[in-house]
Structures are given as C-alpha cells and as structure tokens.
C-alpha cells in the first residue's frame, strides 16, 4: 500500500535522481570522504539536472513541485550512504527562508542561482555558547543607516566551506528582550569581514564541510534582512 500519495511524476523524478546518484555521486564518495568536501561542480551538475530546490516556483527556474519531491530528494541522498552533498539542507531548510521571507528583489537575485547550483546555501544560528538556547546568541547586527554591521562567530555550520550565501541569525544590540532582538540576515561569501574557519573534524559525515564562520565588522546591505525585523521567534 502506498501511504504517501506519489504520482507518476514523483516516481520519474526519483528514478532520474537515483540514476544521477549512481553515476555522479556514489562512485565519488570515497574520494569526497577523504577530501572532506564535495566539489562545487557536483552541486552545479545536480542543480542543472533539476534536482535542487524542487519546490521553488517555476518563475525562478524551479520545478514548482510539492513537498513529496523534497522527501524524495532527502531519501535518495541518504540512500547513497553519505551526507556531504547536503542538498536537503540547501533546498528544504535554507532556501525556504528566502522563499518565505525574502523581498521580490532578493528572490530574483538569489533563487535562480540556488536552483541551478551556482549558489550553495547555509544557515548559521548555533554559536559556541548558544545551541539549544538560540535566544542566547551573541552575534549582533547593528543598524548603521545604510548598512547592517555584523559581529560574532558561529559554529557547526553545515555547508560552511562551500556556501556562497548564508542565512545568519543575529541580535539587534539595542533591543533588550532576546526574543524580540533577533532577525535573519543574508550574507554573501566574499563580503568583507565574513571569514570561514576550518572544517571541523567529526565522528562521521566526513565529506560534509561543517565549519566555523566569523563576522568582523561585516557590512551588509539593508535589503539583506529576511522578513520583518525581530520576527524570528514569532514565526
């Protein structure tokens, strides 16, 4: 009996994805595990083959599919027995922040690249002293008129080395209530003051580039805030 209402298109998507993994992923896993990184070209190949961000709207180059496509993506990557190519984190955790809270301008700027695999994303919430208790993060985003200026450090960030775009959680230092002070900001790789640390050496998931990220007087444009300011704990 089929519990999830898969349709013919879903099955075809799964079949094509499995074929892709068989050819492009599985044979390379030993090498990636050793290098502790998945080459960016693989992300691009995957994106151009239509497997990244399957739920993103067609307007931005996506498949416009339902969440079952995401389920299939998660299942098939897990089935390859490695987690370096963390396509689900990108497609179903980080990109949805942009889809849900990004302005139209931001969506047009980033979503097509996310779908094609030219932009790999990460989400940076955890800090050395703030894990389960997200409200206690210390990274701040100061409003300086034309810019937000970010200062702080993040750790355990998946896709931390490969990422081209990061969703960063930071506090407004002028607001006292920690639950109201927090917002999400987009930071592009290459922005001055944004530095990637070393890959963390883990028990497993060796090809996954989990890393520390540092922000030192990192200036980002005002429009890079996601959604309304201070809404993180509300939605």
């Amino acid at each position: 009996m089929q519990i999830l209402p898969y349709k013919k298109e879903h099955h075809e998507f799964r079949k094509r994805l499995r074929e892709f993994c068989k050819k492009e992923v599985i044979p390379n896993i030993p090498m990636w595990e050793q290098q502790k990184l998945v080459p960016k070209e693989v992300w691009q190949h995957m994106g151009r083959s239509g497997f990244l961000c399957p739920t993103v709207d067609k307007r931005y180059g996506g498949l416009g599919g339902d969440f079952l496509y995401s389920v299939i993506l998660a299942e098939e990557i897990a089935y390859t027995n490695h987690s370096g190519l963390f396509a689900s984190l990108h497609s179903d955790v980080v990109v949805p922040y942009i889809v849900s809270y990004g302005s139209e301008e931001i969506k047009q700027k980033y979503l097509p690249g996310c779908v094609k695999g030219d932009i790999i994303t990460a989400v940076a919430m955890t800090e050395p002293d703030a894990g389960s208790d997200l409200s206690s993060i210390k990274t701040i985003a100061q409003d300086q008129g034309d810019y937000f200026v970010l200062n702080g450090s993040k750790t355990f960030i998946s896709n931390g080395i490969n990422c081209d775009l990061v969703v960063v959680a930071a506090r407004d230092p002028d607001i006292e209530d920690p639950y109201k002070a927090m917002s999400l900001y987009l930071v592009e790789d290459g922005t001055e003051g944004f530095n990637k640390g070393n890959k963390l050496d883990k028990m497993g998931m060796h090809s996954q580039d989990t890393a520390e990220l540092f922000f030192v007087n990192c200036k980002i444009p005002k429009k890079n805030i996601l959604g309304q300011k201070t809404m993180v704990f509300l939605c």
């Binding site: 955890t126 894990g131 389960s132 750790t155 355990f156 963390l200 050496d201 883990k202 028990m203 497993g204």
Partner: peptide, 15 residues
C-alpha cells in the same frame, strides 16, 4: 551536544 560529535572532544571515540 554538537561538541560530542567533534573528534577533538574525545568522547565519540569511546563510542
């Protein structure tokens, strides 16, 4: 937590 999964904390090796 996350630190337990990192090799430099010398806990995961016990496991």
């Amino acid at each position: 937590g996350g630190y337990g999964y990192m090799r430099e904390y010398h806990v995961e090796r016990f496991y």
